[in-house]
């Protein structure tokens, strides 16, 4: 794959303040093809994510996205913000089902800064909402950041 996409800039502990908002991430509309790809990539082949007939049968009206895809969107928000190996904890609760064509916006806020286990850490909350403002997933995270001059 070509790598024209830019690396996120490195963030230091001193750059982050309690109350800061993580730059929003607006994802492209969820498509059926994306769910098929996500099934193959993740290995979660539960047909209610890929087969519209199953969705009808279960009375949920068509297919729904994997919850983990939405957590993946939130993971992208966080790894863009702190880098790929800085997360110490990341948990979400799935609140409602995501359907085809939903446009998911991910956002987050820093709630805490502290030192623990010899690391400078930040904690925060994140959420994913659709185009109507319905919350799909919400959660919390902890990340370790480097300090300037160390």
């Amino acid at each position: 794959m070509t790598t024209e996409a830019k690396l996120p800039t490195k963030r230091y502990f001193e750059d982050v303040q309690v109350g800061d908002e993580i730059p929003r991430l607006v994802k492209a509309p969820v498509t059926h093809l994306q769910l098929v790809r996500y099934a193959g990539a993740s290995g979660d082949f539960n047909p209610l994510h890929t087969d519209p007939k199953i969705g009808e049968m279960l009375g949920i009206g068509g297919i729904i996205a994997h919850g983990m895809l939405i957590m993946g969107f939130l993971g992208q928000l966080l790894s863009d913000y702190v880098g790929p190996t800085a997360l110490r904890k990341f948990g979400v609760r799935f609140k409602s089902m995501t359907r085809l064509d939903d446009v998911i916006t991910c956002s987050g806020t820093i709630t805490e800064k502290y030192e623990a286990d010899g690391e400078a850490r930040i904690a925060g909350k994140v959420q994913a909402v659709d185009q109507n403002g319905d919350v799909k997933a919400s959660g919390t995270f902890v990340a370790a950041l480097p300090k300037r001059g160390e």
Binding site: M1, A5, L7, A41, G72, F73, G75, Q76, S79, P84
Partner: peptide
């Protein structure tokens, strides 16, 4: 690719090593 996260660190060993990682790192999920 399925998530739509284009961060080069997740797609290229060269990009990951250039950034100081031994290989492509696992993404959060």
């Amino acid at each position: 690719l399925a998530i739509g996260d284009e961060n080069p660190l997740y797609h290229s060993k060269e990009a990951a090593q250039a950034a100081g990682y031994p290989d492509v790192p696992a993404s959060p999920t």
